[in-house]
Computed example of a mutant assay.
Amino acid sequence: MSDQDDEESAGEGWIVSFADLMTLLFAAFVVLYGLKPEGIGDAIKVLTVTASIRETFNETPDTIPEDRRTGPTIQGKAAFEYFKGETLVRPIIKRYRRSENVLNIINKEMMQIKRVIDLKLQDETVLNKRRKKDDSQNQGVSVHKDTNGYVVRLLSSYFYEPGEYRVKQKDLRKLKELGRALKQHGRRISIEGHTDKVPQQGQYSNWELSALRASFIAKYMINELGFAPDRVKASGYADTKPIATNSTPQGRKLNRRVEIRVEYDE
């Protein structure tokens, strides 16, 4: 083959790319023709599809070539000549972030658990005192917001004898009411035992006592209330995660606790 033939073969390579381009353009015009509105109903469908496409692709790239920049150049806020950064009309399709939906579910279920606690778990003396909002953590059972859900906190002084890991017999009814309410929501729960820094005088160390108390509640949830074993886990942290100072009796009382963490899968 001569050099002239090689040059002619190399020069025909653009035909493949040109054919691909024409095929893509043809497909695009066929789709556009299929979206041609015949009436009001079809026009709304076209607008809906258009809004969805714009919403899907309306994302600013991390970096834009300097010769294409016409606006701010901060990462995530750069703009180029074919991108309009402000929406002038209300979008037809409203996108809800999943995190917002989960947050609403958490708030709803958390309030349901709080009502169960107020109506069935709290002592009459607690209910009649009209406690202040900032004093809610001193209650025997309380609910608190968490980063991945919420936490039901059980103070050990209300549920256990000193140095014991079994819940008091008279308080098992409260644990049953709480467990039934949690089971209705079907969430994954993590039960954590905590102590203060004062060494135990009995047969268990702080590590052992915290783990045993969490395990007792976990086994109760599974064996007595029918929780799925793969939806419950227990752990003991001793004094490693205090929520108050260990230098005062009141702080140590708050640190001696069992927490039932209700987790939500994103």
Rank of each mutant, 00 (worst) to 15 (best):
L88M: 07
I189Y: 04
H194A: 11
L175P: 06
E177M: 02
R95V: 14
R90V: 10
Q139E: 15
R173P: 02
R188H: 15
Q184V: 05
L127N: 15
I92H: 07
R95Y: 12
D118C: 06
A181E: 10
Y96C: 02
R97C: 05
Y165I: 01
G163C: 00
I93R: 05
T125K: 13
G85H: 03
N128W: 01
R115I: 11
K197V: 08
N101S: 05
R130C: 01
N138W: 13
G179P: 10
K197W: 08
Q112N: 11
N107M: 03
K133L: 14
R130W: 03
K108L: 06
Q169S: 11
M110C: 10
K170Q: 10
R90K: 10
K168N: 03
S190W: 09
Q137H: 13
Q112D: 12
R180H: 12
E109F: 00
R173A: 04
I113T: 10
T125D: 10
N107L: 08
P91M: 04
K168F: 02
K174Y: 04
K94S: 13
V151E: 12
V198M: 13
D196V: 06
S156R: 09
H144D: 04
Q169I: 03
K120N: 12
Y165A: 03
I191T: 08
G179C: 08
L178M: 05
D146K: 01
R95W: 11
K132A: 11
D134I: 13
R188F: 15
V89T: 04
S190N: 08
S157I: 07
V102N: 07
I117F: 06
K197I: 07
V126E: 14
R153Q: 13
K84C: 14
V89Q: 00
N148D: 14
S157Q: 10
Y165P: 00
E100R: 13
S136L: 14
L88N: 01
Y165E: 00
K132N: 09
V102D: 12
R90W: 02
E100Q: 11
H144V: 14
K145A: 11
I191S: 03
K84N: 15
K197C: 12
H185I: 09
R188C: 04
R188E: 12
V89Y: 00
A181F: 03
L175V: 15
E86F: 12
N148W: 14
K129H: 06
S156T: 09
A181H: 01
M110Y: 01
K145Y: 07
T87Q: 06
S136D: 15
S190H: 13
F159N: 08
E161I: 02
I92T: 12
V141P: 07
R180E: 15
I189Q: 03
D196Q: 08
H194R: 12
R98D: 06
H144C: 08
N148H: 15
V143H: 06
R115F: 00
L172F: 01
L175W: 06
M111C: 02
D135P: 02
